[in-house]
Amino acid sequence: MNSTLLLRLSVAVILLTHSIFGIFDNGINDFGNLFLNQIGFAPFGVILAWSIKLSHIVAAILLILNKYIKLAGFITIFVLIMGIILVHFKEGWFVVGGGRNGMEYNVLLIIVLLAIMYPEGFAKKNHNLNDV
């Protein structure tokens, strides 16, 4: 079994549920109109919101299929970092408990995505003639 299988499936479920519910409860349009447009992305807030959610769906599918993992990870990490910058940082660290709507969840997802993208870690492997 692939060492990242459970992480990939878990993150895929999170990305899918976070996106799919927004499609059916008008959450994506509300996010675009009531938040993104209000903080300076008008008139592109709704298009940007849909782009974000569709990128989550595509990333989830790629994670499930174990294809283009680094591409899916980098795009999703970019979205999560922008979420930290635009939304969560000003709310502090905690999502619940010690605060509300903070950045801890995004940070955790970023770390998990990095673990999926680099299951062997970041260390550069040294190859010498004895390894051949």
Rank of each mutant, 00 (worst) to 15 (best):
M103L: 15
N128L: 13
D30T: 15
I110M: 05
L15Y: 07
I52Q: 06
E104L: 08
G99K: 01
M1P: 09
L15G: 03
L6E: 12
N26A: 11
G22H: 08
Y68I: 02
Y105I: 04
I20Q: 08
G83Y: 09
V11N: 00
I116L: 01
R100A: 13
L36N: 00
A49I: 06
F35I: 11
M82G: 04
L5I: 15
M117H: 02
L16P: 03
F122A: 07
Q38G: 11
F35M: 12
V46G: 02
I85A: 10
N128I: 15
G83K: 04
I111D: 04
F122D: 07
V79A: 08
P43I: 15
N33K: 15
L9Y: 11
M117P: 03
W50V: 01
G121H: 06
I20G: 05
L109S: 05
G92A: 08
G97V: 07
I75C: 10
I116S: 00
F24P: 03
K70T: 11
N130I: 11
H18W: 07
K125G: 11
K67C: 09
R8S: 00
I110G: 09
L34T: 14
V11A: 02
E91R: 12
E120P: 01
V58Y: 13
F31D: 00
I116F: 07
P119L: 08
G27S: 04
F89I: 12
M117F: 10
L15E: 07
A12T: 02
L108Q: 05
A59Q: 03
K125Q: 13
G45A: 03
V11P: 00
G121D: 05
G22C: 04
